[in-house]
Design a protein around this nucleic acid. Structure first.
Lengths: 340, 340
DNA sequence: ACTTGGCACTTTGAACGGTCGAGTGCCAGT
DNA sequence: ACTGGCACTCGACCGTTCAAAGTGCCAAGT
């Protein structure tokens, strides 16, 4: 018994109706509301096979059917049609994002915009540094034996780190080191920095090397450790509104939204802005998030994506609308970043 | 009919019992569990007057009593005894905070610590800049007509801002400006910076003034605008666990926790670490937060507080415990900051 | 070989009524 | 001023009933 076209139509209707009403949907309303051209009895037969195949389920005998994760998956992959954004939404995206003054501002505006457009929670990763180049490195003596290392990237981001030194700082040496570091790494791709900086140590007197290695170590840490961990989150209140329908799993979800490490795993690898990832329910393999879905995509100034952004909501979300919103925002943000 | 000592004892018992059990408390259990030395009937009489005075209320005839906001207020002001932290909690504070590497790290650790200690949501304002002094100002040409202004404070904080210029940037002029700015403001109190920087403009050729004014304007903006607006939040998941007992007002609360402007108003003026503010229910005058209380205090390296931190939870919270936790953490963080 | 109408069956949820118990207010007695 | 006693109230709980929604299956129709 294969899944023919009409059965797929039925599944689509079930998903759409259920997302709209939040209530298990029966054969009768299905026949009434979605003009499928067949009788409820026929639909019942189709539903029986859909259930056998695992696309839908009934909460209890003789209630309507509800899509399973597998059902949503099929819907997203093959059944949903792209739902273009309204003119008002497009305008909102523009006016909201065009006022941004720097990269951090772009991110914070984007995350709020996404949350508002989708009425769900939004997550935006700050642009990763791995694809950036170094604009400038600044060393500032903070005290007798402490140095602040500031790393400035071509995207306008600033990373900072305080280094405790074993010895006192010589202002002149510090200036020399700053000059040499900048000479070697300014304009370089991040991936190239490690090699170029480590060569540097040998240029200094052995007695100065503790300072040099401490500073370069901090610099490399800034590159490696922090390069992807910053995130902005908005719209958690929207999830509360969905409320009870999240089967009591609001708390793990809110916790996950605070745990940036977990969240980054959920967002997944940053891919090109044109590819969009959807993780449905159990697919994201996190115990507390079995009724949570994530729509995410990469974004950045070129096809090599710099970072991810996404929307988090209940599995019973409006996938076409969410997908359209995430896609449109990611494209627009990418264009803004490319223009800088 | 005045409020004598025993009536206050009764009120205290009601608050403590209600906070512990989350259920309206009647005269009998009150007489049983809290050894008040009088019979339930007597307690009933006291409860009647307490209700008349507005300190307690009953959800419906013949259920137990529940404290009102006014009741909690009296409890906090006059009845609660300081509840010292356990040894384990003190140790937790130390081990948690001693590993912090810089100010930002202190803040992010503090907010998580507070959330964990109180099982509620915590908010920590980043140290205000108004009381800081300037360590260093760095200007970096980002492109033909854009300059990044970086401000480094003695607390190790870094503020950044990108300036678009009307004219092209002259590298030499920029270096000169950087040197002069640093000469004038390094080591200065923030409040003094405005005057000292504005005098600077006159020292330059009229043709260079556009650059100078643009840069100094950005500098002053960093000082004034951003100096109090950064906040860290943690523990929102804990609120969801309290869940239904928040009478459906989880959503406005979560929204408020995201709206940093609102949140700052709630935290209130940063006061000395030794004074602690408690806002109960309607006192914070925000429609959606009528069953929410806030315990907040200032913190900073000296008695002149730099910023606020606090805990947000249901009005039926453990006030003595929360107050003790907030106070202890604020004192400890203040000590850490003072040691820098 | 599908599709359809009919029908018996299951389950839920709402409505109803009765009982129970917690808790109160009041009063009279100490 | 406190206490015990007592009548009263009201929500919580339980069991029952009933209607509605929905299903699966079967026999008949195309």
């Amino acid at each position: 018994m294969s899944i023919d076209d009409r059965k797929l139509d039925v599944l689509r209707a079930i998903v759409e109706d259920y997302v709209a009403t939040q209530e298990p949907v029966g054969s009768k309303v299905l026949a009434d509301r979605h003009h499928l051209g067949v009788s409820p009895a026929t639909i019942r037969n189709d539903m029986a096979t859909l259930e056998e195949e695992g696309y839908i389920a009934q909460p209890h005998t003789s209630a309507g059917r509800v899509p399973t994760d597998k059902g949503y998956r099929l819907f997203v992959d093959r059944l949903s049609t792209v739902k273009p954004l309204s003119a008002a939404e497009r305008r909102a995206i523009q006016t909201f994002l065009d006022g941004a003054v720097d990269v951090d501002d772009v991110v914070s505006r984007t995350v709020r915009l996404l949350a508002q457009l989708t009425s769900q929670a939004a997550v935006v990763q700050y642009p990763s540094l791995t694809r950036s180049t170094v604009r400038h490195v600044e060393l500032v003596a903070l005290g007798a034996a402490r140095v602040l290392v500031v790393l400035i990237t071509d995207t306008g981001r600033v990373e900072q780190r305080v280094v405790e030194l074993p010895t006192e700082v010589d202002e002149y040496l510090l200036g020399d080191l700053r000059a040499r570091i900048n000479a070697r790494v300014a304009g370089q791709d991040f991936t190239a920095v490690e090699a170029r900086v480590s060569e540097l140590t040998e240029q200094f007197d052995p007695e100065d090397r503790p300072l040099v290695t401490a500073v370069t170590a901090a610099l490399l840490e800034s590159l490696v450790e922090r390069h992807e961990e910053r995130l902005a989150v908005a719209g958690t209140g929207n999830l509360a509104r969905y409320g009870q329908e999240f089967d009591q799993e609001l708390e793990p979800l809110l916790s996950a939204l605070e745990e940036h490490v977990v969240l980054l795993r959920l967002l997944g690898e940053a891919t090109s802005p044109s590819t969009l990832r959807v993780r449905i329910g159990h697919e994201n393999a996190l115990s507390g998030l079995s009724t949570t879905s994530i729509v995410a995509t990469g974004y950045g100034p070129d096809e090599e994506a710099l970072a991810s952004m996404g929307v988090v909501g209940p599995t019973r979300m409006d996938y076409p609308g969410t997908i359209a919103a995430v896609g449109a925002v990611a494209r627009y943000v990418s264009r803004i970043l490319a223009a800088r």
